[in-house]
């Protein structure tokens, strides 16, 4: 069953066409990696996919979308805003309820973020911020994840662990990655983006890192 699809979609920035027209379908249960050099159009493609279908979906943009002035707890809690009443949300904004804190703790523990529970997001390091956004996505009651470089600021082993968590937790994932090895290890389908179009679309077991190298060399034109 197709959960995400685009038909001859395109995006332009002013007069300039930056993406498409391209067509893509993502089936339920697929773990898709979007690869390509920076500026190729991965983020734009994610944006188009997100606009197409918003419900039941967690989004992790590259800038993460954390509220700098709120604590890690609140940022993670925000993943559940839609499932709770406004009054309840307000109560948690002012004074977090015990069992909500417990929930968030359970999510943060494996991410090694417990000690930052009450730190404002604006005071975190890049890696910590990324893990906070991961926790928010995990807290969200969603089946599909769209993520843009979710582990770019994390070291090797931790990046591996989090990729594993994300791909296991969400039924369907579309993740933009510049790290080709990571993509091959954790995703079952690789979509290569070049010059605003799909240059490659293969199951990952048929590919090796070398096969993807062409995506990164000499961007034709100044994209």
């Amino acid at each position: 069953m197709t959960v995400l699809s685009l038909d001859a979609a395109h995006a332009s920035y002013g007069d300039k066409q930056v993406l498409g027209p391209l067509t893509i379908r993502v089936a339920q249960g697929e773990k898709v990696a979007l690869v390509g050099h920076s500026g190729a159009g991965k983020s734009t493609l994610l944006g188009l996919l997100f606009d197409k279908r918003r419900h039941d979906m967690a989004l992790m943009p590259q800038e993460l979308g954390l509220v700098q002035t709120l604590s890690v707890f609140h940022n993670v809690y925000m993943g559940r805003l839609a499932n709770r009443s406004t009054l309840y949300n307000l109560a948690n904004l002012v004074r977090p309820l015990r069992h909500e804190v417990a929930r968030v703790r359970d999510i943060l523990a494996p991410l090694d973020m417990l000690d930052k529970l009450w730190a404002p997001a604006g005071e975190l390091s890049g890696g910590q911020r990324q893990r906070t956004a991961v926790a928010r996505a995990l807290n969200q009651n969603a089946k599909v994840l769209l993520a843009d470089e979710p582990v770019s600021a994390l070291d090797g082993p931790r990046a591996e662990a989090i990729m594993l968590t994300l791909t296991q937790h969400f039924e369907t994932t579309v993740i933009a990655l510049h790290d080709v090895e990571l993509a091959l290890r954790h995703c079952d389908r690789i979509v290569g983006i070049k010059d605003g179009g799909i240059a490659l679309d293969q199951p990952s077991h048929r590919l090796r890192a070398d096969d993807l190298r062409f995506l990164y060399v000499a961007p034709s034109a100044a994209a």
Partner: peptide
């Protein structure tokens, strides 16, 4: 910052959106 509002789960109420994704960022 408009991004926090964008990443909120679909169906988040207006007031919750305002209080979580708008006010805190503007607060200082």
């Amino acid at each position: 910052d408009p991004l926090p509002k964008q990443v909120l789960p679909a169906g988040t109420g207006m007031l919750s959106t305002f209080l979580f994704a708008r006010v805190p960022d503007a607060w200082p």
